[in-house]
Amino acid sequence: MAGIINYIKESFGELKNNVTWPTMAEAQSLTVLVAVFSIVFSLAIWGVDTVFSKVVGFYFKFING
Rank of each mutant, 00 (worst) to 15 (best):
K54F: 04
V34R: 04
I39E: 07
S11M: 10
K54E: 13
A44H: 01
S53Q: 09
W46K: 03
S11L: 15
K9I: 15
T23G: 01
S11W: 07
K54P: 00
A44Y: 03
N18S: 06
E10C: 03
T20I: 06
S53E: 08
N17D: 03
Q28H: 15
S29K: 07
W21S: 01
T50D: 02
V48Y: 06
E14A: 15
W46S: 10
I45H: 08
E26P: 00
S42E: 11
V51M: 13
T23F: 01
A25H: 13
T31E: 11
T31M: 07
V19R: 13
E14N: 05
K54W: 14
S29T: 10
S29C: 09
W46I: 03
G13L: 09
G47I: 00
A44I: 05
S29Y: 11
G13R: 03
K9P: 00
Q28N: 15
E10V: 01
V51E: 10
S42T: 07
F37E: 06
F12T: 08
M24E: 13
F52D: 12
E10H: 09
E26L: 12
K9Y: 04
V32G: 03
A35D: 05
A27M: 07
A44R: 03
V56F: 13
Q28K: 15
W21T: 00
A27S: 12
P22R: 02
E26F: 03
T31I: 09
D49T: 05
T50F: 04
V55D: 11
G47P: 01
E26Y: 04
S38D: 08
Q28Y: 15
T31W: 04
I45N: 08
F52P: 00
T20E: 05
A25Y: 02
T23W: 00
L43G: 01
E26T: 15
S11T: 14
V34W: 01
V55C: 09
A44M: 07
E26R: 05
F12I: 09
W46G: 02
